[in-house]
């Protein structure tokens, strides 16, 4: 590990100032991903600005169920929050599906959103990777990609985004609040992430000095009828093979409204707007759910060894929506 300077930020402006003029400085949240990457030599910051103790460690709740979540709130605290469990069960379920109890106790909301892909090539500095070392190539395309992307990927990069929480937040139209070089601003969570195209280096549209301070989640009248389901290779402590976050509003056997996002199929938390579009006004039946899945997954371009993710994502969406109708 390369030696680095550690400093703890006292407030957001000084944190931004500490990072703004130093290309080799990074923010540190819970450290559950960044510290691993530093040990592996993937991340080599010369300066860590610890933002985990900034005063963004509370969850505010409006009467209608809208949330204002501090970026330093720990994943386990957010998962256990009564308002989250009541009004947005899919968010609590997504959080609890991630990592282990120990990791969730450390991980922050802001850090969770900005964690890096777990693609094996990205994490091994002895091998090429366009995300880590632009222009070096993507061995995953011909190598091991069983659990990489089927949609939204590019010639340059087939990595997936690993977060569970971000999938639920993508479905919930969450908004990310930032403190940056030019002061505060906001960004819909679905616009935070960018597809790799021919420049996979950056996972997000953020400037390195942009600091996530809060995430707001608007009220969703049918948020209580929602679910996050994660398929994985073992019963716990594994990244998703495919996951889905869904909320459903059904009246008289017809879908009035819905929110759907997939995880582990794309370089970003994948908001399934085509599926949502197909479902609004459709009968709440398995056939209609399957048609919605097809509308979304028709864009999929699976790789040699991950074509199974297409029927898996379809089945998972149909199952999750069907159970929400019954629930």
């Amino acid at each position: 590990m390369r030696p680095f300077v550690y400093e703890r930020a006292e407030e957001a402006r000084s944190a931004v100032a500490a990072v703004a003029d130093r290309p080799d400085a990074m923010y540190l949240g819970g450290g559950t991903n960044l510290v691993d990457l530093m040990r592996l030599g993937v991340a080599e910051p010369a300066r860590l600005v610890d933002v985990s103790r900034l005063p963004y460690d509370t969850v505010g709740v409006r009467p209608d169920g809208a949330l204002r979540i501090g970026a330093a709130v720990r994943n386990s605290d957010l998962a256990a929050h009564p308002a989250v469990r009541r009004a947005h069960p899919l968010l609590a379920q997504a959080l609890l599906a991630g990592a282990s109890g120990q990791v969730r106790n450390m991980a922050t909301v802001g850090g969770n959103l900005l964690q890096r892909t777990r693609c094996a090539y990205f994490q091994d500095i002895t091998k090429p990777c366009n995300k880590r070392n632009p222009g070096s190539g993507c061995p995953a395309r011909e190598g091991d990609h069983r659990n990489l992307a089927i949609i939204g990927h590019s010639e340059a990069c087939v990595a997936t985004h690993p977060s569970d929480m971000a999938v639920a937040l993508a479905a919930l139209d969450a908004v990310v609040h930032l403190e940056g070089r030019d002061g505060p601003r906001t960004l819909p969570l679905t616009e935070l992430y960018r597809l790799p195209g021919d420049d996979p280096r950056r996972d997000t549209v953020l400037d390195p000095a942009d600091l996530i301070t809060e995430v707001t989640v608007p009220a969703l009248s049918f948020g209580g009828r929602s679910h996050y389901r994660k398929v994985r290779d073992r019963a716990s402590f594994a990244f998703a093979v495919v996951s889905v976050a869904a909320a459903l509003d059904v009246a008289g056997g017809v879908v009035r409204d819905c929110r759907i996002a997939f995880g582990a199929i794309a370089p970003v938390p994948w908001r399934a707007r085509r599926a949502e579009e197909a479902l609004r006004g459709a009968p709440a039946t398995e056939d209609a759910f399957a048609a919605a899945a097809r509308a979304e997954l028709g864009q999929a371009r699976p790789l040699r060894d991950n074509a199974f993710k297409v029927p898996l994502a379809r089945n998972l969406l149909v199952r999750t929506l069907t159970e929400l109708v019954v629930a």
Binding site: R118, A120, D124, T126, K127, P139, E142, G143, D144, D233, R234, A235, S236, F237, A238, F239
Partner: peptide, 23 residues
């Protein structure tokens, strides 16, 4: 096996799975 580079690719516990208690 990473055929291109010749090593076992998934060389950590996040990638090489053994049963967790829940299994």
């Amino acid at each position: 096996m990473d055929v291109e580079f010749g090593d076992y690719l998934n060389h950590d516990f996040a990638q090489y799975h053994i049963p967790a208690c829940a299994d």
